[in-house]
Amino acid sequence: SKDAAQYVYDEAQKGVTQVTVNGVTFKFDNWQKLLKYAQKLLN
């Protein structure tokens, strides 16, 4: 959902490398990768 994507995006902006959405945890090597993933979700 857009809300989940926005949440992931906001978390990535904080510099975190993992985020949990609806009980599913996504882990990334660095926050830039998390940010890229979030941007994909938002598009």
Rank of each mutant, 00 (worst) to 15 (best):
T17H: 06
N30G: 09
L41M: 02
A5Y: 05
K40V: 03
Q18A: 07
E11Y: 07
E11G: 05
Q6C: 15
S1V: 10
D3C: 14
W31Q: 00
S1I: 11
V19K: 02
E11L: 13
V21R: 01
Q6T: 02
T20A: 12
W31C: 01
G23T: 13
N22K: 09
K40A: 05
L35S: 00
K36N: 07
A4T: 03
L35D: 00
Q39H: 02
V21Q: 05
T25Y: 06
K36I: 06
A5W: 12
A12T: 08
L35A: 01
T20W: 14
D10W: 14
N22G: 11
A4N: 13
L34A: 01
L42Y: 01
T17W: 13
F28T: 04
N30F: 14
Y37H: 04
L34N: 00
Q32Y: 08
Q39I: 05
L34K: 00
N43S: 03
N22H: 13
Y7A: 14
T20D: 02
V8S: 07
F28N: 02
N43Q: 07
D29C: 14
G23A: 14
N22L: 13
A38P: 00
N22A: 14
A38F: 09
V16S: 11
K27V: 15
F28Y: 05
F26Q: 09
V24C: 15
K40G: 02
T25M: 10
F26D: 08
Q13F: 12
N43G: 03
N43R: 05
V8P: 14
L34E: 00
D3Q: 08
Q6V: 10
G15F: 11
Q39S: 02
L34F: 03
K36H: 05
K36L: 08
K27R: 12
Y7H: 15
V8W: 14
K33P: 02
L35N: 00
E11D: 12
Q39C: 15
K27G: 11
L42G: 00
F28P: 05
Q13D: 09
A38E: 00
F26I: 13
Q39P: 00
A38K: 01
D3G: 06
Q13S: 07
T20M: 05
L42P: 00
L42A: 01
G23I: 15
Y37V: 03
L35F: 06
K40L: 11
V24I: 05
L35I: 04
T25H: 11
A4I: 06
V21W: 02
L35C: 02
K33G: 02
F28L: 13
K2G: 06
N22T: 14
T25R: 05
